Simulated assay, not measured.
Amino acid sequence: MASAKIKKGDQVIVLSGKDKGKTGQVVQSLPKADKVVVSGVNIAIRHKKPTQDAPEGGLVRSEAPMHVSKVAHVVDGKPTRVRFEVRDGKKVRVAVKGGEVING
Rank of each mutant, 00 (worst) to 15 (best):
S3W: 13
K7G: 09
D10F: 02
D10M: 05
G17N: 00
K20Q: 10
K22N: 12
Q25W: 08
V27P: 01
S29F: 07
L30I: 09
L30V: 09
P31Q: 11
A33R: 11
D34M: 10
D34E: 13
K35Q: 13
K35D: 10
S39F: 10
S39R: 15
G40K: 03
N42K: 04
I43V: 11
I45A: 13
K48M: 13
K49C: 06
Q52R: 14
Q52L: 15
D53L: 11
P55H: 03
E56H: 14
E56Q: 14
G58R: 04
R61T: 11
E63K: 05
E63M: 15
M66E: 07
M66P: 00
M66T: 09
M66S: 09
V68A: 09
S69L: 06
S69T: 15
A72D: 03
H73W: 06
G77S: 00
T80N: 06
R81K: 14
V82T: 08
F84L: 06
F84S: 08
V86D: 08
R87D: 07
R87T: 13
R87E: 11
G89A: 06
K90H: 06
R93I: 02
V94Q: 05
A95S: 07
G98W: 07
V101M: 14
G104E: 07
G104W: 00
